[in-house]
Design a protein around this nucleic acid. Structure first.
Length: 155
DNA sequence: GCCAACGTTGGC
DNA sequence: GCCAACGTTGGC
């Protein structure tokens, strides 16, 4: 089982939105970066992802989601009215991919970036790298465990 | 809103 | 294939 981190702007889609979604499941679509797409394609059912709120106050890891199934075509790229529309995408060559994710847990408290930066076990985490912009990225099992442990601790 | 960092595009 | 221009991301 692999571990990942996925980003979403809470104004666009927050972890609370996911909690209200049918079966607490959503299609993680709209990814328009090749490296992030390749990570989506590398995901397998049962993989767990940290859910990160970007462009938030404060930006923070706020919970855990589980991958359901494997990557499939992101058909929002085919829709001219979708903000993720890509004129290069066709039904035969959809270009972009999506996976379904289900909510596992909303942390009792969010873990803001500046708190994560102070944790020795998380040194080297991709999210904390200066200039890191990927919206889907791998997380090591040890880093994942460290973040979950931190969420169990009082602020 | 500012701006640094990054990815993509396109002229050559 | 180089690289400048441009658009986007995302912390602050």
């Amino acid at each position: 089982m692999n571990h990942w981190l996925v980003k979403s702007e809470p104004e666009t889609f927050s972890i609370d939105d996911l909690a209200r979604a049918p079966r607490r499941t959503t299609s993680w679509d709209g990814v328009r970066n090749y490296q992030a797409r390749n990570y989506l394609r590398a995901m397998a059912a049962g993989d767990r992802c940290l859910f990160y709120h970007s462009n938030a106050a404060p930006s923070a890891v706020v919970g855990i989601v589980e991958v359901v199934g494997t990557a499939r075509p992101d058909t929002t790229a085919l829709d001219p009215r979708s903000p993720g529309h890509d004129p290069r995408a066709t039904a035969a060559e959809p270009v972009w991919s999506t996976v379904d994710v289900r909510l596992v847990e909303i942390f009792p408290r969010g873990l803001p970036l500046d708190e994560l930066r102070g944790v020795a076990a998380l040194a080297g985490m991709e999210l904390l790298r200066k200039g890191s912009r990927l919206s889907v990225m791998p997380v090591s099992a040890a880093q994942f465990r460290a973040v979950v442990a931190l969420s169990r601790r009082k602020a």
